[in-house]
Design a protein around this nucleic acid. Structure first.
Lengths: 193, 193
DNA sequence: CCTACCGATCGGTAGG
DNA sequence: CCTACCGATCGGTAGG
């Protein structure tokens, strides 16, 4: 009984690579590390992938797409800015939670991409952030939010969301909705009694 | 007129290393990179430093001390939790602002330390975070803060503070007090109008 | 998917 | 602080 017919070796390589890139970082992960963890010889990797950077490329742009899917679902809704913000927050945290290793790549390892992919990736990242920014701007204009300094609040918010992958492991008892709810509540109403 | 008598080559090496570690990451920074940027031959580095990791070690623990100094100033004060929190926030941002390269090492590169320094560093980092946690707990107990979920709010807050080095360059027109004030205001009272 | 191997680069040392 | 050099490891290829 072999599983080789349905088994996708390339997917396995990417999954293992995601995990190693997260744990050790992209430059410190060798193809020999990767091969050992996959269970084949280093040279055999090249039957499935073109290069080390090619793996990074595929992981980076795939997880970027996940974040885009999440925010696009929110953008099209015709609801107040604060409700949009809440959904965007929970959506972001869900992506991070469901793809923790890939999220680490999305956050830290993409910078090892070479051109033109580096620029392409940066653009995608900026676009994603822009959608969050638009929600805040809309909320300010319509009087839902205070006249906050977006230059400070936007990165603060995104930072708080991005780092959830570091301390909130999937095994945690706290769900993404609960985390999103708590962060949203803090951002909206503060912790002041 | 030479400055060689007062010039500290070791300090220069550490400064350059900080910058490279931040830009390229520790593993991707070679001793040849470092030497070139210092302006000497690679082998000459070893007249001033013991090893590559030794540089990382010195940078990591020195910046950790900066963060400790900042929070220690706040801890000894006999003031309400919300005022303490504000001072801790501004203090943290000031350290990040004044030592942006080293802060990047404090945040991301320390994980390449080997034992026993890795454990030692982790302990110091946890202690620093614990001081922030204590301020939040004190505020909740005394009824200054709401009954927030510290497990979520604490890392969210620290993440927001830590990432300031990424988007807030020293050349920025926004000062650390202004950033601290804005983040503190958001955390305390929220953005809701 | 493997064996065998390549040139390049790595951190670091010897000796002056 | 330099020249010269070391063994180890790197990403990747040839050929089957």
């Amino acid at each position: 009984m072999t599983e080789s017919t349905t088994f996708n070796r390339k997917e396995q390589i990417k999954k293992v690579a995601q995990n190693l890139f997260r744990e050790k970082g992209y430059p410190a992960t060798s193809m020999r590390d990767l091969a050992k963890n996959v269970g084949i010889e280093p040279a055999s990797l090249y039957s499935h992938i073109k290069s080390k950077e090619d793996i990074l490329k595929e992981i980076s742009f795939r997880i970027a797409q996940e974040f885009f899917n999440s925010i696009d679902e929110v953008r099209i809704l015709n609801i107040p800015a604060d409700e949009k913000l809440k959904l965007a927050i929970v959506g972001h945290i869900k992506v991070v939670r469901n793809h923790a290793d890939a999220s680490a790549v999305f956050l830290h390892e993409w910078r090892f991409l070479s051109e033109p992919f580096l620029t392409q990736f940066k653009t995608q990242r900026r676009t994603y952030e822009y959608h969050f920014k638009s929600i805040l701007e809309e909320g300010i204009q319509r009087g839902v939010f205070k006249n906050i300094n977006i230059k400070i609040i936007l990165p603060s918010l995104l930072s708080a969301l991005n780092w959830t992958y570091e301390w909130n492991r999937p095994a945690s008892s706290i769900g993404p909705e609960e985390i999103g709810e708590e962060i949203y509540e803090m951002i909206l109403n503060g912790i002041n009694k």
